[in-house]
Design a binder for these strands. Sequence first.
DNA 1: CACCTGACCATCG
DNA 2: CCGATGGCCAGGT
Length: 105
Amino acid sequence: MNSVPSFRDIIYSLIGSIPSGRVVTYGTLAKMAGYPAHVRQVCQAIRTIPADSTLPCHRIINGQGKLSVKGECYLRHKQALMDEGIIFNLNDKIKLQDYLWEGFD
DNA sequence: CACCTGACCATCG
DNA sequence: CCGATGGCCAGGT
């Protein structure tokens, strides 16, 4: 047992706290975890999430307001977001200023 | 121990 | 708008 939670554990907790209809970027997630420079580690942490996890990994996007995933995963996440009321623009981008979650509602 | 990789980000041209 | 570049840090080989 570890007395101090790992960076990855913090990320998982934050992901589980994302409200429906909201999204977070990798950079924002890293800041919320207390390590704004560890954005790359956020990628690895999220990437190691099992497919059957309950974490809403589809609410995690990049700073450009687009999904950083490809292929089937992209369609699955996009559909999940639209199902929560999030609107995609013509360029498959979403309005960050309207949906970005920074830890407060 | 050194090198490479990564669901990124900000900046520049 | 798109491509290239530098930075950032942990993990894997």
